[in-house]
Design a protein around this nucleic acid. Structure first.
Lengths: 192, 192
DNA sequence: CCTACCGATCGGTAGG
DNA sequence: CCTACCGATCGGTAGG
């Protein structure tokens, strides 16, 4: 029972890696089987289908982001600190969690209905809560007034490149990354 | 002769659109044929192969960016103005040129060798010339000192989301976009 | 530009 | 967990 769960998790992680490298559509179940040293047909003792694998990865990942949003919303600090906490979380996910690619990359577009619609709703929920924090900071005078969507998506997207680059093992530390990126993104936002 | 060239261009644009929406691997030649009102086999009177279509789109797009870099490098202004010009160009491409998706999205990863390696070299060339301008501005004291790669990729990535969002026809004008994004990205970089 | 068709590969199942 | 195999779909060609 426990062993089965481990194998399932192993397959899921191998799938996330392959989906990231080659894309969902270009990854065959035979590719995935090779990555975990099985025959393709044996995968189906552990998982339901290729589409189900994508679904599980996408929704598990979305839940991580929503859990963190719950936590940040309960923080008793100003908008500045909340945004900083969220940016740090995004950076940590992008550099540490291989499945987080589903939020940054676009592989979730291969979800089938009704899951695609449901996933988009979770994204919208997360985005609008993030946007509220930005608007809260603009209203209190902490942040400059700007189009909230432009700020929001600029923050999201700028963190996206990390998975392309960070794995290459350059001389940049996670701390450097968090410090430099937060500064770059927030100094355009902060009221002097 | 002229008619054939138009059809080829039409097919290329339909392909760029489909590659963007569904991804290269998930787009079949039958999908593409339907989009231009032909049978799949008839496509091959105008194009060589699916891989060739991707190749043409990728390299044509790379050339646009390199041409603009040539132009900017010849400008007799400071680094600040050069970076601003490049950011505006990126935004314009993302909002107006449907094929520019190949630079922002990752569909170029489906290029076959040796073209994949060649394309990566063009990207590297563009990136290192962009990085030089940033370093030039840091050396002259125009910009704050920061890790050039972090600044570079943050700029690139932050413009990437535009194609997801801008087409939706929101109330944001291109001018608003250029003004707000440039401000957001540059104010963290500028020396006060 | 279409009809007819090809070999290869796909996700997945049967049966043990 | 594997062997053997399925129907569907893929990119592409032959021939007209």
């Amino acid at each position: 029972m426990l062993k089965k769960k481990n194998k399932k998790q192993l397959i899921r992680e191998a799938a996330a890696q392959l989906f990231r490298e080659k894309g969902y559509a270009a990854t065959s179940m035979r590719d995935l089987a090779r990555a975990v040293n099985l025959e393709a047909s044996s995968l189906y003792n552990h998982i339901g289908s290729k589409a189900g694998l994508l679904r599980d990865i996408c929704f598990e990942n979305a839940q991580h982001y929503l859990d963190e949003m719950d936590r940040v919303e309960r923080m008793e600090t100003n908008a500045d600190e909340k945004v900083k906490a969220l940016i740090h979380f995004h950076i940590r996910m992008a550099t540490e969690d291989i499945t987080s690619i589903m939020a940054f990359n676009d592989e979730w577009r291969h979800l089938e209905e009704p899951h695609l619609t449901e996933f988009k709703q979770l994204r919208k929920n997360y985005e609008s809560r993030f946007r509220s924090i930005l608007e809260e900071g603009m209203a209190s005078g902490e942040f400059k007034s700007a189009h909230p969507n432009i700020v929001l998506y600029t923050i999201f997207s700028s963190i996206r490149w990390l998975h392309d680059w960070y794995k290459a093992g350059h001389a940049v530390t996670p701390e450097q990354l968090q410090r430099n990126m937060t500064q770059l993104l927030l100094s355009g936002l902060m009221e002097e």
